[in-house]
Write a protein that binds this DNA or RNA. Structure first.
Lengths: 348, 348
DNA sequence: GCTTAGCACTCACTTGATAAGAGTGCTAAC
DNA sequence: GTTAGCACTCTTATCAAGTGAGTGCTAAGC
C-alpha cells in the first residue's frame, strides 16, 4: 500500500494534534479539524489503512488513534516543517550565553537551564572530553603557609584550580620554579598523554627541597588531571516531567527519574551518541528504560575542536520541530562563544 | 492535665512508630507493641487525653492517632535519644569530604549529595556569603591574543577565574603590571567594600595602554566580584520524595517541587535561619508552602569565620535523631577540612 | 478511682453493577 | 470511492452495599 497525499495529510494532522494534546484522536474530530470535506467514515478507512501500515495504533477498541514511533520518524524526516525561533527567544539565548564569557562549566550549565526553560522538558548537557586538549601551563600559587593553589590552563582556555594542603613548609621561589619547570615539561602535551604515558611519574628533580614538594604535589596533580578528563553532566528541568500528562502516573514518573538519576550510565549513553543533531524516537533508543522517550541531542564545539553535547529528553510526543531549532540555536551560540583562536572580532 | 510517665511513653511510641510507618496507629496495635500490660481501652483513654492536650490528632473518627507538630517538638526536645552514627557511615563521610581538598563548591556539593544519600531525603547546601571575605590577590593570565583569565584569590583561599575577551591586543607586561597594581590596591579589603565603596570606579591610571586595558576589564572584574558575593545553592536527592508515602499524591509532590524550585526564595529562607543546628517542624515554618515539612539545617565554617549552611527538607514525620546526627557530623567535617589558617597538622 | 471488656457507631475503602460516552468496524446505499 | 447508519466494544463515572479498622461510651471488675 502506498502513502497517498491524503493519508500523509491525515497522519500529519494526527501527529500534530497528539503532540499538542496527548489525547487519542477520533475520526469525527479529525474530520472537522481537517476541513477537507471528507467524512468521518472515510477518515476511519484511511486510519485503518495507516494502522495496518504501522503508523498508528489505538490503546483499545474504542479509543481514537495514536501515532506510533514509526509515524514520529516519518514526521521528523518528511512532514516536519522548519520552525523559526521567535526573535525574542533568540535574543534571550544570545544574551544569557554570551553576556559573561565566564567559565565553560558555568556557561554549559546556563545553556542546560535555558534549554529546559524554553522547551519545558528535561534538559542535559555534557562538557567536552578533554582527552585531546593540550596543556598550556601549570601554575602554583601560594595562599598561606599550608595551602597552595594548583592552576592548570589548557590550550582551549579551560582553567582548573585545586587547593592543595602542604604538610611541611615551602618557599615561594621553589613554587614558582616548579611552575616553570612543569610548564616547560608538559606544555603542548595532551592531558591524557601526561597521565597515561607515565610522564608524571618520571618527573624528578635533584634539588632536595623541590623533590619533597613534588612528592606532595604529585597525587594532587594527577587527580586534578583525572578530574579534568571527566565529563561533567548537568541537568535541569527534571521536574518539568510533572506537567506532562504521560507522567501523571507516579509509577511512570519514578521510572523516568530513576533512569536519568543513574548519571554515570546516562552520561555514557550521551557520550556514545553521534555528533550533530540526533533524534532518537521511542524504540529507536538502545536502552530499555528509554523506550518510552525521545531524545534529541546536538553537539557544540570548543575552540572548534573539543566536542560537548546538549539535549533534551521527553515523551515521544514532543514538539520535534521547535525543540530541534532551539537546541541547534543554543549549540551554535555556545560554539560561537568559545571559538577562542578564531580571533574574529565581535561587533557589539 | 499533666504528662504522666505513661503518657510520655505512649506518645513516644506513637511518634516513633509513625516516623517509621507513616500509618496512623490504633490502640490495639499500640497495646501489643508497648508490652506494658495495659489494655487497648486504657490506651484509648490516654490517647484521648493526649489528643485533648494537642499532641495527637486523627484524620477521621475511625482512624488511628497521628502525632501533631507539637508532639514532634516534644519528641525532638525531650524524648529523642542521641543517635550514634555507625562507624561505617562516619568513614564514608570523612573519606568523601577530605580525600581531595578540592574547590569549596565541589566539596559542598559533595556534602549535599552525601547527605541526601544517607538520609534518603532532599538535601541542600548554600555556600558562605563572602561579604566579609578579604581579597588576597588579583591576577591576570594571558591565554591567547584575545583572551585573558582573571583570577581572584581571597584570604579564605577561595579561588575564582573568569575568562575575559579582549577586543584589542594587549601586552603581557601590562597585564602583569595591572595584576600587581590591583593587588596592591585591593589586598586586605573585603569584597563588598571593593564593590560598594566605588573603589573600582576610582581606579585610574595615566598610562595610555593600561587605561584602555582597565576599561575592558572593569566590567568583568565587577561582575566577577558580584558573582563571588552570590550565595550558591546546591540540592540533591530531590527525587527522594517519591519514596515517601506522604508524596505519593502527584499533586502534593508537585507543590513540594515547586517550592524548592523557587531557588532564589528558598535560598533566602535558608540564609535567614539562625546558626547552629536548627530544627523547624511543620507549622513552625514561616513559609506557607513548608507547613507540611520539617527543615533541619546546620552551619559549617570556612576558615573559622565564613558561614555556610547545610540541611535537609522532608515530611514532618522524619527520623530527627538520625538526620540531626548525620548533618552535624558532615558540617563538622567540612569545618575541619576548611580550617585553613589553623595550621593544625593532620595525621594520616 | 483506675482499668478493662463489650458494644454500638463512624468513616474510609473496596467491590460490583449500571449507565453514559466516545469511537470503531462493518454493511449497504449513493 | 464515499458516506450514512447502526451494532458493538471498551473506558470512565457513579452509586450502593459490604467490610474492617478504630473509636467512644458505658458498665462491671479490681
Amino acid at each position: 500500500m502506498d502513502l497517498s497525499e491524503r493519508k500523509l495529510r491525515i497522519l500529519q494532522a494526527i501527529v500534530g494534534d497528539f503532540i499538542r494534546s496527548a489525547e487519542p484522536i477520533g475520526s469525527r474530530t479529525l474530520s472537522k479539524k481537517l476541513d477537507m470535506g471528507i467524512s468521518p467514515a472515510t477518515i476511519r478507512n484511511e486510519m485503518s489503512d495507516l494502522e495496518e501500515m504501522g503508523f498508528l495504533t489505538h490503546p483499545h477498541t474504542s479509543a481514537g488513534r495514536v501515532p506510533s514511533d514509526k509515524a514520529y520518524r516519518l514526521y521528523v524526516n518528511n512532514l516536519m516543517q522548519k520552525y523559526e525561533l521567535p526573535e525574542e527567544e533568540k535574543q534571550i539565548i544570545a544574551e544569557k550565553l554570551t553576556k559573561n564569557v565566564s567559565e565553560l562549566d558555568r556557561t554549559i550549565q546556563h545553556a542546560a537551564t535555558l534549554l529546559s526553560e524554553l522547551t519545558n522538558l528535561t534538559s542535559f548537557a555534557i562538557t567536552p572530553s578533554q582527552e585531546s586538549n593540550h596543556l598550556r601551563y601549570v601554575n602554583f600559587l601560594p595562599v598561606d603557609e599550608s595551602t597552595v593553589v594548583l592552576m592548570i590552563v589548557t590550550e582551549s582556555g579551560r582553567v582548573t584550580n585545586t587547593a592543595i594542603k602542604i604538610k611541611t613548609s615551602y618557599k615561594e621561589e621553589n613554587l614558582s620554579l616548579l611552575s616553570k619547570v612543569m610548564t616547560y615539561n608538559y606544555k603542548g602535551k595532551t592531558l591524557s598523554d601526561i597521565l597515561t604515558h607515565d610522564i608524571i611519574r618520571n618527573f624528578e628533580t635533584d634539588i632536595e627541597a623541590m623533590s619533597r614538594l613534588v612528592e606532595t604535589i604529585r597525587p594532587n596533580f594527577i587527580s586534578t588531571l583525572e578530574n579534568m578528563l571527566n565529563v561533567d553532566l548537568f541537568m535541569d528541568g527534571v521536574t518539568n516531567i510533572f506537567s506532562i500528562p504521560e507522567y501523571n502516573d507516579i509509577g511512570k514518573a519514578k521510572v523516568f527519574l530513576e533512569m536519568i538519576n543513574k548519571k554515570k550510565h546516562f552520561t555514557d549513553v550521551l557520550v556514545r551518541r553521534d555528533n550533530g543533531v540526533i533524534i532518537t524516537i521511542g524504540n529507536e533508543n538502545q536502552e530499555d528504560l528509554m523506550r518510552d522517550c525521545s531524545l534529541i541531542t546536538a553537539t557544540y564545539h570548543i575552540d572548534g575542536k573539543l566536542v560537548g553535547k546538549l539535549g533534551v529528553i521527553g515523551p515521544t510526543r514532543m514538539k520535534y520541530d521547535e525543540v530541534t531549532s532551539i537546541i541547534e540555536y543554543i549549540t551554535d551560540n555556545i560554539s560561537q562563544t568559545f571559538k577562542i583562536t578564531g580571533g574574529e572580532e565581535k561587533d557589539e
